[in-house]
C-alpha cells in the first residue's frame, strides 16, 4: 500500500520525545517543512516536492535574554492559524514562537523555574493552534497556557491559563477536520491519562473530562468531535469528546505509543466518512488505520489497514505529509533521517 521513498537526512539525530516530528506543507511554494528535536537543538529541513532541493536550519533553545544555559527542548510544532503560521518550541525554560521559516523569534514566554532544581521537573510540552487566533501550550504543572496571537506582529499575549490537569501535560490537539459544526475544538492529555475537552473562545470552556487509568496518554488527536488517544500501554482509544462515550479500544502496539496523526481529508466524499489514522510506537512499528464515521448512528469504527516496521528504531515521530494521507514521514531515537512512505 505504501512504499519507502528516499529519506531526508537531518543535521543531528532525533531525541526520544513524544510527537518528535512536525510537518508543514507550504503549497504555494511546493515545499514541505519538517522539524525534529535533538536535545537542545531543533533540526529544520525544507524539502521541495520534486525531491531535488533540501535546505537545513538549526534552532537553539535561546532563553530570551540571558545566554547562561542551554535547556533541553521538549517539542517543536508548527501552528497553522488562518492568518499566519508559527513554529512553536517548548523547553525546560519556556516557550518560543518563531516565524514559520525559523528566521525570527517573535515571542518568548518564560516558565517559572526555581533557583535550584526541584524533584518536579519544569517544562512545557503539548502544542496546538486553535480556531482563529489561539495557540495553546501545556506545562509540567498541568496548566494549559492560552496565547492570543494577532494576525501579524509580535504582540502575542497570554490570555488565559486553564487549570484542570494535575499531572504534566503530554500532548494537545485541536479539531483537525476544519469543520465548524463540532462543539469541541481542543483536547488536552496528561501523564495520568486524563483527557480534557474544551471549547475555545474569549473564555475557554471545559466541556468534558475523560478520566484516565493511570497510564500516560502520550499522543492525542481530535477529529469531528472524536478523540483518538494513544497510551503508554500501546492502546489506542476512541472517545466521543463531549460525552466521553468510548467507541473503541485497540491493542495497537507492544510498547509505549509516541505519536498519532490523522489525515482529515482522506475520503471526504465517501459514506461513511473515512479518514486515516497513523500510530507509531517504541515497538518500531507504524500503523495506518481507517476511522469511519456513520452520521446516522453517530458511531465511529476503526479498522487496521497497514503496518510498516522501521527495523531497530524506537519511533518517536510520525506524521502524514498531506491532508489526504497520501504520504507519511517517520523518525526515531538516534536516527539522523526522516523516512518517507508514499502510497503505491
Amino acid at each position: 500500500m505504501y512504499h519507502k521513498e528516499k529519506s531526508i537526512q537531518i543535521k543531528s539525530s532525533a531525541s526520544a520525545l513524544y510527537n518528535n516530528l512536525s510537518v508543514l506543507r507550504i503549497a504555494p511554494r511546493c515545499l514541505t517543512y519538517f522539524t525534529v528535536v535533538h536535545a537542545n537543538v531543533v533540526n529544520m529541513v525544507s524539502a521541495s516536492w520534486d525531491g531535488l532541493n533540501y535546505s537545513h536550519r538549526q534552532l537553539q533553545s535561546k532563553e530570551g535574554n540571558v545566554a547562561t544555559s542551554s535547556s533541553l527542548i521538549m517539542q517543536a510544532a508548527w501552528c497553522v492559524l488562518p492568518s499566519r503560521d508559527l513554529l512553536v518550541l517548548t523547553s525546560q525554560k519556556g516557550i518560543q514562537m518563531y516565524e514559520s521559516d525559523g528566521s525570527i523569534m517573535v515571542y518568548w514566554h518564560a516558565l517559572d523555574t526555581p533557583e535550584t532544581p526541584t524533584a518536579q521537573a519544569v517544562f512545557a510540552r503539548g502544542i496546538a493552534a486553535v480556531r482563529e487566533k489561539y495557540i495553546c501550550v501545556g506545562t509540567s504543572t498541568g496548566s494549559v497556557l492560552v496565547f492570543d496571537v494577532p494576525a501579524k506582529g509580535s504582540n502575542i499575549t497570554l490570555s488565559e491559563v486553564l487549570e484542570e490537569h494535575k499531572e504534566p501535560i503530554t500532548d494537545m490537539a485541536s479539531e483537525c477536520s476544519g469543520s465548524l459544526e463540532c462543539i469541541a475544538d481542543l483536547v488536552s492529555a496528561d501523564d495520568s491519562g486524563l483527557l480534557c475537552v474544551w471549547k475555545s473562545g474569549e473564555d475557554f470552556q471545559l466541556l468534558n473530562k475523560i478520566p484516565g487509568f493511570d497510564v500516560s496518554c502520550s499522543s492525542v488527536k481530535l477529529w469531528k468531535g472524536t478523540v483518538a488517544a494513544g497510551y503508554g500501554t500501546g492502546q489506542i482509544r476512541l472517545y466521543e469528546g463531549v460525552t466521553g462515550i468510548l467507541y473503541a479500544e485497540v491493542n495497537a502496539h507492544a510498547r509505549w505509543i509516541y505519536s498519532l496523526d490523522i489525515a482529515p481529508f482522506t475520503g471526504l466524499l465517501s459514506l461513511p466518512v473515512i479518514v486515516q489514522l497513523l500510530s507509531a510506537a517504541e515497538d518500531s512499528l507504524v500503523r495506518v488505520w481507517h476511522l469511519s464515521l456513520t452520521p446516522e448512528t453517530n458511531s465511529v469504527e476503526i479498522e487496521h489497514m497497514y503496518n510498516e516496521c522501521v527495523t531497530d528504531t524506537q519511533i518517536c515521530g510520525a506524521k502524514f505529509c498531506d491532508g489526504d494521507g497520501y504520504a507519511f514521514a517517520v523518525t526515531g531515537y538516534d536516527l539522523s533521517e526522516i523516512i518517507r512512505y508514499t502510497q503505491a
Binding site: 500501554t233 492502546q235 466521543e240 462515550i245 467507541y247 491493542n251 495497537a252 453517530n298 469504527e301 479498522e303
Partner: peptide
C-alpha cells in the same frame, strides 16, 4: 507488564 499483545480491536455501543 500491563500491555496486551497487539491485534485486538473492540468496539462499543453508547
Amino acid at each position: 507488564c500491563g500491555t496486551q499483545i497487539p491485534g485486538l480491536i473492540r468496539m462499543f455501543s453508547c
